[in-house]
Each structure stands twice: as structure tokens, then as C-alpha cells.
């Protein structure tokens, strides 16, 4: 296995919350935000880290980047203990927050980039080369001299990603990088990240609620809920686990008679007076189903739909929390 850049063992974070129980009395209780996360990420991986609101994603990210002290457990990132060696770790990682900025609000974007060169002590030539590449790939030239406060969200996010990469970090953490972006900006950001990830030398950890980000970028998906990892594997593995079905939608010349003879093809919906039928495939192939329908001579049109990640994840999130759930790997 290639080099491990992130490793956690039984990582936990508990917060103490105090609630009012009387006129003056307050009761304190402990709320687990992260309840024992074991995670191993190899160099060059593109990891999607998802979960519903309050699942513990951001808390994990804060512990991995060294801004939050874990209650217990082990965590190593790029060979450093994040909190104790935060400043040294900072040189090895880049962080992009969709909802906050690391740029200098009052200064032109170019000025932020210049400052970052000094802060990370990047040799001038390396800095210039990386900036030139980001300018080209993220189309920054039009607003390089604009103060950050005047940038649109899409422009600022492209600036944020550049700012996080100028010191060529080993690991790039992205916390909802496409939140609030329009379709074109989303596509630009995703294409850039896909290109970055395909080179294999930067590890990407992406938290997002936009599952299209995950589908486009991440081969590995870690789902966290109630502070625990409930799935760790590829997207197809997730579909297999939740019995996600491909669907075949057929349009028929004559109304649906009610049989295909193909085992595993289950009728999910009949519409348009029986002229449109949706089958779920839990066995058999789309080819077998289409062939069977064609034999009957009534087939006019056919569409094959891949399983929808949103459905699977919604089902995963809706599951009640329990101690019996374990990670799949």
C-alpha cells in the first residue's frame, strides 16, 4: 500500500453543553460529536467525507487540521500530531472553506497571493510557476487586481483554492467548496480538482452536501453519522450494500400486459395508461429485459437509469443511530 498521510484511531470529541433546568441552575451534559473514527488515507487518494448536518464532519476536519483538540484517540496527518505541531503541519496542508475566507478582505487578490508566498516561505520561482498554472486553469486574470471584498462568490472560491495550493500542500482539505456556486463555477472548480487529483501527488479530502461533487471527484466515500463512520468504501460498494437498482424505463406501443419473464426485473411504476413502465433491476441485465420486451413486439423506446446516489445517501442518513452499525471496511 502506498504511503499513509492521514491516520486516526478511535478519534473522539465530546462537547459539554449546559442547559438551564431552573431559575439559576444549569445542568451539564456531554454530547459526543465524533465518537470513535478510524480512518486511513493514502497519498494521492481523493476521499469524499459526507454526512448529514451535525454528523461530525467539520469537527473531524478541525481535529485533522489541528484547530481542535481531540477528547481522545490518535491522529496523525503528514507525520505530525495536528494540535501539538499545528504550525509545522500548516506548511504541509491546504484548507479551503466554502463558507469563510482565508484571503485578505481589503486587499486585491494578487496581494493575498503575494503575502502567502512570504507566510509559507515559498521560493519565488516555485510560487510564480504555481500561480501561473492556477491563473490559467481557474481563469483568474480578470479579477486578480480586484479587492477580495468585491469578488463574486465564484471568483472568490477560485481565489481560495489557489491560495490553498500555492505552497503545494501534500493534503488539501476542502470543506464544502462548491456551496452557493452557480453551475458554471461548480464545473470549473470540479474540473480543476479532478485534474489536481488525477496527478496523484496531492491527497484530497472533500466534505460536501453536493453529492455530484463526490460522484465526479471521489473514488472513495466515507459516510459519517452521529459521529461514527457508517460506510467506508467505493460508491459502487455503497450501492451494492443498499441494494441500489439500475432502472429501465420503457415506452410501449400497446399497454403493459404484466409479464416479462425476466427474473429480477421488478415493476416499480406503470404510467401513461400502461404505455410507460419503470423496472427495477435487482438481477438479470437490461439487455435481457429489453430483448424480452422486444420479442413481444411492443417496444417503442428505452432508457437505462443508473442508481441515484442521493437516494442511497438519504436512506443511509435516515437510518436510526445505533451501536450495532459498523464500518464496512
Amino acid at each position: 500500500m502506498s504511503e499513509i498521510v492521514i491516520s486516526t484511531a478511535d478519534l473522539r470529541k465530546e462537547f459539554t453543553v449546559s442547559t438551564r433546568v431552573g431559575l439559576l441552575r444549569r445542568a451539564r451534559r456531554t454530547v459526543p460529536a465524533v465518537a470513535g473514527v478510524d480512518l486511513t488515507v493514502a497519498r494521492g487518494e481523493m476521499l469524499g467525507y459526507i454526512g448529514p448536518n451535525g454528523a461530525g464532519k467539520s469537527t473531524t476536519l478541525k481535529m485533522l487540521t489541528g484547530v481542535l483538540t481531540p477528547s481522545s484517540g490518535e491522529v496523525t496527518v503528514c507525520g505530525f500530531r495536528p494540535v501539538a505541531q499545528r504550525t509545522r503541519l500548516a506548511r504541509q496542508i491546504g484548507v479551503v472553506f466554502g463558507q469563510r475566507s482565508q484571503l485578505w478582505w481589503d486587499l486585491p487578490l494578487a496581494e493575498s497571493f503575494r503575502l502567502l508566498r512570504y507566510i509559507y516561505r515559498v521560493p519565488a520561482a516555485d510560487h510564480a510557476a504555481r500561480l501561473a498554472e492556477c491563473r490559467r486553469l481557474l481563469d483568474l486574470d480578470a479579477f486578480l487586481d480586484t479587492p477580495v471584498r468585491q469578488l463574486s462568490l465564484g471568483q472568490r472560491m477560485r481565489g481560495e483554492i489557489t491560495a490553498a495550493l500555492l505552497h503545494s500542500p501534500e493534503v488539501l482539505f476542502l470543506d464544502e467548496p462548491t456551496i452557493g456556486l452557480d453551475v458554471v463555477s461548480k464545473q470549473a472548480v470540479r474540473a480543476f480538482l479532478a485534474d489536481l487529483g488525477s496527478r496523484g501527488d496531492t491527497t484530497l479530502v472533500l466534505t460536501t452536501h453536493d453529492l455530484a461533487d463526490i460522484e465526479k471527484l471521489c473514488r472513495r466515500l466515507v459516510v459519517i453519522d452521529h459521529g461514527r463512520v457508517v460506510h467506508d468504501g467505493t460508491l459502487p460498494e455503497l450501492h451494492a450494500r443498499y441494494d441500489s437498482r439500475r432502472r429501465v424505463v420503457v415506452d410501449l406501443d400497446t399497454p403493459w400486459a404484466g409479464r416479462t419473464g425476466v427474473p429480477g426485473a421488478v415493476v416499480e411504476a406503470v404510467e401513461a395508461d400502461g404505455h410507460r413502465v419503470t423496472f427495477g433491476l435487482s438481477g438479470g441485465t437490461a439487455g435481457e429485459l429489453v430483448a424480452a420486451l422486444a420479442r413481444d413486439g411492443a417496444l417503442r423506446d428505452v432508457a437505462v437509469l443508473e442508481p441515484d446516489i442521493e437516494d442511497v445517501v438519504a436512506r443511509l442518513y435516515a437510518e436510526p443511530a445505533g451501536d450495532d452499525r459498523v464500518a464496512s471496511r
Binding site: 489541528g66 504550525t87 500548516a90 469563510r100
Partner: peptide, 18 residues
């Protein structure tokens, strides 16, 4: 208050010096 201080903590500099 806004949480933006997180960006300050993620720089390889002591926040007081910076």
C-alpha cells in the same frame, strides 16, 4: 465570533506575531 479565526490558526505563523 464568526469562526474566521480558523484561517489564522491554519497558517504556519504564531497568530500573535502575525
Amino acid at each position: 465570533r464568526t469562526g474566521d479565526v480558523q484561517s489564522d490558526l491554519l497558517r504556519p505563523l504564531h497568530p500573535v506575531a502575525s
